[in-house]
Amino acid sequence: MNNFFFIRHGKTFLNNHKRYTGLIDVSILESSWKDVIDSVNILKNRNITEIFSSPLFRALETAIIVNSQLNIKISVIKEFQERDFGILTGRKKLQYKKHFFKQGSHPYIYKKKIMYGLSKLKYKSNFIIIGHSGTYEYICQLLLGKINKINKIQNAQIIYFYKKENKWYIEKI
Rank of each mutant, 00 (worst) to 15 (best):
N2W: 12
F5A: 15
F6Y: 15
G10F: 03
G10W: 01
K11P: 13
F13L: 12
N15Q: 02
N15M: 06
N16W: 05
N16I: 06
H17V: 07
R19Y: 00
R19Q: 15
Y20R: 06
Y20I: 08
G22I: 11
G22H: 03
L23D: 03
L23H: 06
I24D: 03
D25L: 11
V26K: 12
S27D: 14
I28G: 03
I28K: 08
E30L: 05
E30R: 10
E30G: 10
S31Y: 00
S31R: 05
W33H: 13
K34I: 11
K34D: 14
V36D: 04
I37F: 14
D38I: 01
D38Y: 09
D38A: 06
V40A: 11
N41F: 04
N41T: 10
I42H: 00
L43I: 12
R46D: 11
T49D: 14
I51S: 02
S53M: 05
S54Y: 11
S54M: 11
S54Q: 08
F57I: 11
F57V: 07
R58Y: 09
A59N: 12
A59S: 14
A59H: 08
L60H: 10
L60A: 02
E61Q: 14
A63L: 14
A63M: 02
I64Y: 13
I64S: 08
I65Y: 07
I65L: 14
V66W: 07
V66L: 10
N67L: 01
N71S: 07
I72M: 10
I72G: 06
V76D: 07
I77H: 04
Q81C: 15
E82P: 12
E82I: 03
R83H: 12
D84N: 15
F85D: 01
R91G: 09
K92S: 00
L94W: 02
L94G: 12
K97A: 01
K98I: 07
H99R: 05
F100Y: 13
F101T: 04
K102Q: 03
Q103P: 00
H106N: 07
H106E: 04
Y108P: 03
I109F: 13
K111W: 00
K113A: 05
Y116A: 02
Y116K: 04
L118C: 01
L118Q: 09
S119H: 09
K120Q: 12
Y123E: 09
S125G: 00
S125A: 02
I128R: 06
I130Q: 11
G131C: 05
G134E: 13
Y136K: 01
E137Q: 10
E137R: 14
I139S: 07
Q141M: 04
L142F: 05
L144Q: 02
K146H: 15
N148L: 03
I150T: 09
I150N: 06
N151T: 14
K152L: 06
Q154H: 14
Q154L: 11
Q157H: 04
I159W: 13
I159A: 09
Y160F: 15
F161Y: 12
K163A: 03
K167A: 05
W168G: 00
W168Q: 09
I170Y: 04
K172W: 07
